[in-house]
């Protein structure tokens, strides 16, 4: 039985919620999914986070208390959410913005310098897609055809969006390649 409980967190504007929506949108083609964003008493400069549950059986709660996958994009997210990793889980860290080595006895920690890699591509905003590529390398929750189609759908198909699509596609590939180097 397949079940992934994914928590994604970053600073507002880093694209954490976009990762969640993207993963849920691709995942829904094969599995049951829920996507639950954080709202409420969030403050400017604080963390934005969302929960994605993907399962082959009915999903009771959309809230991720123990995560099989954590994607953490900045130090504050790490400090707040690292302890939510479940036994045997995967913690993906944006090492460009998190100092801790993240080592945990509970599961595997993978450090990807996503913001730095995105900067080298010319746009730090695609750090989120680099992490998504890495996530998919380890978890294979999305197939290539569907993820490209959904990426294009979410970004828009207008000619003006072609460059943006290519950029995100490349970021996704770079993330997957980085992850592959780590095994």
């Amino acid at each position: 039985m397949m079940e992934e409980r994914i928590l994604i967190a970053g600073a507002g504007g880093q694209g954490a919620l976009t990762i969640g929506k993207f993963v849920a949108r691709v995942g829904m083609e094969k599995h049951r999914v829920t996507y639950f964003p954080s709202y409420g008493a969030e403050v400017r400069g604080g963390t934005a986070h969302c929960h994605v549950v993907m399962s082959d059986t009915e999903i009771a709660s959309p809230v991720v208390e123990r995560a099989t996958v954590l994607v953490l994009m900045n130090q504050m997210s790490y400090d707040r959410f690292a302890e939510r990793l479940d036994e045997g889980g995967l913690m993906l860290l944006n090492s460009s913005m998190i100092d801790a080595d993240g080592a945990t006895p509970r599961g595997r920690t993978v450090r990807i310098p996503a913001t730095q890699l995105a900067g080298e591509m010319g746009d730090i905003r695609v750090a989120n897609m680099i992490l998504t590529g890495a996530l998919n390398h380890f978890k294979r929750i999305m197939d290539d055809e569907a993820l490209l189609r959904v990426m294009q759908e979410m970004l828009g198909k207008e000619p003006s969006k072609v460059k943006l699509f290519d950029l995100n596609k490349t970021a996704f590939r770079i993330g997957a390649e980085q992850a592959a180097k780590l095994g």
Binding site: A24, R32, V33, Y35, F36, P37, Y39, P62
Partner: peptide
């Protein structure tokens, strides 16, 4: 709140 703000297919 949860039923309202959660996304599902």
């Amino acid at each position: 709140q949860q039923v309202g703000q959660m996304m599902e297919p």
